[in-house]
Write a protein that binds this DNA or RNA. Structure first.
Lengths: 230, 230
DNA sequence: TCTCCTTTTTTGAGTTATCAAAATAATTGG
DNA sequence: CCAATTATTTTGATAACTCAAAAAAGGAGA
């Protein structure tokens, strides 16, 4: 039986890996995201390597094996389906479901998960726009760019929010910037570190660079299938 | 933070206590139901006593304190609401939800639990007929008797099944003996160790004493409010 | 009352996951 | 190229939970 601690390590390593797929994940980074001291990460990584879940290059870094990645994706699938279920079926606020799913992802059985998946109609994205790993098959590749990379005068669609902080997500919701929203980038001034957008309801809003960087968009009016927050 | 191990001990102790409320729960019994060696139970009981969750009489037995009982009831409430939610909202079979709830009861937050409770319309009984401890206030007292205690010729209503084994529960369902069912006790022969019942659909069935003992009933046609398996 | 048997407690040890702090390796600027 | 800094690993401890097996306490029957 695989412990929830191990599940968390695998999930985190996978997510770190995605930020730079060719590089090894450094131990310091892993320790930081797992909120443990470096020595703890080293110890855990050794046991994970012994279990064949990752490759460990001492003083170099780590990389998940195919087996490790499969387990990580399974955890991620649980996490994201649970998030969506909590929003769509239990009426929780999307800003709080991340924290709930952190715990539930280790407790929900495959059977219960597949029921949720069916009830949700096999969704492709979670409430924050993150793709839900399919039960079998490869992870879909996403082509997102951060909002500040969109040239002024372009249309785009909000795809994903890469910060799960409830306060940030509530801000996003208050300003109708949830995934799926079509926006128009009115201006981007690198000097002022400011992006101004028009949103469908007619209003416009100006964001600083730090906030804009957390908003991932798809250029043009690509249609995105899958359930998401209205 | 209270560990799920501790939650399980408290829950089990509470349930054992109920079988004979005036007596202390013996250590051997606790070890048996927790499936640990006696020494483990002793060690855990000492820490629980130090935390003020139970009273421990060495070589005598244990009894939950008010605080311990409150925590136990909280766990039991989670367990039973989750069971009902899994049956009514996720369509799981009632014979399998006990096992699922054993894990989920330690992972579901109060917020999620109260959403389930609301969605279920504040049910009073779980799928097996066990009363759901209220969020606040005392546990309702049930007046059940085992099926063999019903005199022949009497009507009764099935109240609860005191065995969570999926095979037994599937048998119960196949024979339409789920909680809420009105039955008529046609005969009871202690010598033959057999009870024969008539069920609403017109058929009748004969049970051995061991199976009949696991079926708790309410005499007469008392109406039981609360959601249950159809 | 005095063994024998059962129950319970104690003792010693193992596992998993963690931290603190010392030791070591790698990198980087002068 | 070397010293200083930074990253990583090692070492020694701890907490929670567990088991195995020895020791102790309580009966119950002769």
């Amino acid at each position: 039986m695989i412990s929830s601690t191990v599940e968390n390590y695998l999930k985190r390593i996978y997510l770190e890996q995605q930020t730079d797929p060719k590089a090894l994940v450094p131990m310091g980074k892993l320790a930081a995201v797992m909120q443990v001291v470096p020595g703890t990460a080293t110890a855990m990584v050794k046991t994970l390597a012994d279990s064949g879940l990752l490759e460990y290059e001492p003083r170099g870094g780590i990389r998940l094996t195919a087996g490790g990645e499969q387990l990580a994706l399974h955890v991620l699938r649980r996490h994201r389906i649970i998030e969506l279920f909590l929003v769509n079926h239990l009426g929780l606020d999307w800003s709080e479901v991340h924290a709930e799913a952190e715990t539930l992802e280790h407790a929900v059985s495959d059977k219960v998960l597949e029921r949720m998946d069916t009830l949700l109609n096999h969704p492709r994205f979670d409430p924050h726009g993150d793709p839900i790993p399919p039960a079998k098959g490869r992870m879909p590749t996403e082509s997102w760019i951060p909002l500040p990379a969109v040239p002024a005068g372009q249309r785009a669609q909000i795809a994903q929010l890469s910060d799960q902080d409830p306060a940030f997500l509530q801000f996003i919701e208050r300003n109708a910037l949830t995934p799926g929203t079509e926006i128009y980038v009115a201006s981007y001034d690198p000097q002022a570190d400011a992006v101004t957008l028009n949103v469908p309801d007619g209003s416009h809003i100006t964001l600083g660079g730090a906030a804009a960087e957390k908003i991932m968009v798809r250029l043009g009016r690509v249609s995105q299938c899958g359930t998401r927050v209205p």
